[in-house]
Simulated scan of single mutants.
Amino acid sequence: MELTHLGHAALLVEVADQRVLIDPGNLSDIEDLRDLTAVVVTHQHKDHCDPDRVPALLAANPQARVLVEPQTAEVLTGAGHGGQTERMATGETVDLGGLTLTPVGELHAVIHPYVPRVGNMGVVLRAEGSPTLFHPGDSLDGEPGEVDLLGVPVNAPWGKVAETIEFVRRVAPSRGVLPIHDGLLNDTGRGMYLGHVKDFGGEGGVEVLDLRGAGPTSL
């Protein structure tokens, strides 16, 4: 499996001859991406699905399947960009060649009582002979089962580091965590969050596989 962190919540996953982009948001570098097998959107917020840039992304990748959380599909359709979309359903596996994608969860984490919760579906990616990856979107209550790699939202308006650490401990990825959702942090603040996750995300700590700025990385 080759992974590229494209900023904030966006990951490009290359495995089993597939190229899957997860969460092309407005804090991510998604220009110039070609030959995508699928574009996956966990929920409708702009830092995960940029309505100003997604149409150009889809036009440049007309062969890509567009797998989205159902409320997000409605938003894209209302904006005139819903023609390619397929609505994901929790627990229903999508086959992408030698790769399977399984949606997990239903609702976005609580931001505060005055912001309505929207739908959110994390995704588990599995391919024979490769690590299993869970990208949770913006929720920490998904139950992905056993996974090797866990995308961990580092910072968010809804985030609390104590809840992040408990999330990592509960899921207990066998190979480590991938920092995502970090676009609002400067380097010093980001390092502080990563230190907490590394030191307390498991008994004796957890490996943090930091892909920011690393380009395509084989895991």
Rank of each mutant, 00 (worst) to 15 (best):
L3A: 02
L3I: 07
T4Y: 04
T4Q: 02
T4L: 04
H5V: 00
L6H: 04
G7Q: 05
G7Y: 10
H8R: 02
H8L: 02
H8Y: 15
H8N: 15
H8V: 04
A9S: 14
A9K: 13
A9N: 13
A10M: 01
A10Y: 12
A10H: 06
L11S: 05
L11G: 07
L11P: 02
L12V: 12
L12N: 09
V13F: 13
V13S: 03
V13C: 05
V13Y: 13
E14I: 11
E14W: 12
E14D: 15
V15R: 08
A16E: 07
A16M: 08
A16Y: 09
A16V: 07
D17F: 10
D17T: 11
Q18F: 12
Q18R: 15
Q18A: 15
Q18W: 12
Q18T: 14
Q18V: 09
R19P: 01
R19W: 05
V20K: 05
L21Y: 11
I22V: 15
I22Q: 03
D23Y: 12
D23I: 10
D23W: 13
P24C: 09
P24N: 03
G25A: 02
G25C: 01
G25T: 10
L27I: 04
L27F: 13
L27Q: 04
S28N: 02
S28R: 02
D29Q: 14
D29K: 12
D29I: 09
D29N: 09
I30P: 00
E31N: 07
E31C: 04
D32V: 05
D32M: 08
L33M: 06
L33P: 03
L33C: 09
R34V: 15
R34L: 12
D35N: 13
L36I: 12
T37M: 06
T37W: 09
T37E: 06
A38G: 11
A38E: 03
V39E: 04
V39S: 06
V39A: 08
V40S: 02
V40E: 04
V41R: 00
V41D: 00
V41C: 10
T42N: 13
T42D: 04
H43P: 01
H43T: 03
H43L: 06
Q44C: 08
Q44N: 08
Q44R: 14
Q44S: 13
H45R: 12
H45I: 15
D47Q: 06
D47I: 14
D47S: 13
H48R: 03
H48M: 07
H48G: 02
H48L: 07
H48S: 02
C49S: 08
D50C: 09
D50H: 03
D50M: 01
P51G: 03
